Simulated assay, not measured.
Amino acid sequence: MFMGLTIANVIGVPLATWAGEYLGWRASFWGISGLGVVTMAALRLTLPPLPAPAEGNAMAEMRVLTRGTVLRALALTVVGSSAMFTVFTYIVPILRDATHASLGFVTTMLVTYGVGLTVGNWLGGKFADRSVNGTLIVTLAGLSATLVAFAMLMPYAGASAVLIFIWGIASFALVPPLQVRVMTAAADAPNLASAMNIGAFNLGNALGAALGGGVIAADLGYPMVALAGAATSASGLIAVIASVRRANGRGRLAPCTP
């Protein structure tokens, strides 16, 4: 699911932005609606009928949501997603008003960010196979540092272009270790865990957009939007480090470490 999302960002977001600028925002929504209908039809025609597993127990799976380890893993997904969308939701006005970029540059940066997401998703999976917590710590630290740098350098187009690519990598290098963390904490309820993690990602999307919007509404300036994203990422970093230290203090591996 997440790799599809990253690839869609390479094409879909820039195309929707272009359509919104030249054809009006309604054109973007009509296009998305049309693609949704085509996708539903394609799924209906191509997916084979699958019987429900006889051993499935929905109530047993729901009980995993009472576990602290599962809730903490989902909360970290919310934080990681919020750090991304606090800034990305407003990247077009940031580039237009703070960087004074043309529409062509904005579109190119959206493609660049999407490529970064795709690369980051691949790298995150590769390194999560070695260490989930290590990947989370390095990625969250890198994301925080990148957003701080972006806050300082967003008036400069060249620096912004480099940072947007790095930001994209860091944003989705988080996804595989976060997914592993949730799936490991709820190993006996994999279907629910996977669904809840996607829900947590989307909740972070909404909360991050609200945080960034609040900063803008308070007239604190676009650099503060990036700093708010950096602070959100830093809070996730602190949570992971605290989790590792607690686990080490108990003399055993953290539950999420493969």
Rank of each mutant, 00 (worst) to 15 (best):
V162E: 07
V225P: 00
G213A: 10
I238F: 14
L163F: 11
A209Q: 10
T146P: 02
G249E: 04
S233C: 02
G229L: 02
A141K: 05
L203A: 15
N197D: 11
M152Q: 10
V138T: 08
A159F: 10
I166E: 05
D188V: 13
Y222W: 14
A210N: 04
L207Y: 00
I238A: 15
L136Y: 06
A218V: 13
R181T: 12
L220W: 14
L163P: 03
N191E: 15
M224F: 09
N133M: 12
A161D: 12
G134M: 03
Y156Q: 13
F172D: 06
F165M: 13
A149Y: 04
L203V: 15
M152N: 05
V148A: 12
A161H: 09
A242S: 02
L227F: 12
G214D: 02
V162F: 11
A239P: 06
V132C: 00
R245Y: 06
A151S: 14
I137V: 14
L227N: 02
G236N: 02
N248G: 06
V132G: 01
M224I: 14
G204Y: 09
A157F: 07
A157I: 13
A200G: 09
V240P: 00
S235I: 13
D219V: 07
V162N: 02
F201M: 13
M183K: 09
V215C: 06
V244D: 01
I137Y: 01
A195E: 10
L178Y: 03
A145M: 15
T232Y: 02
R250Y: 05
S243A: 15
A239F: 06
L227C: 04
S144F: 12
A149T: 13
A159L: 12
A189H: 08
A206R: 01
V132P: 01
G199E: 04
Y156A: 13
A228T: 14
I164T: 10
P155M: 08
G249D: 05
A185F: 09
G208M: 06
L143W: 12
A242N: 02
S171H: 01
M196W: 02
T139G: 00
G251R: 08
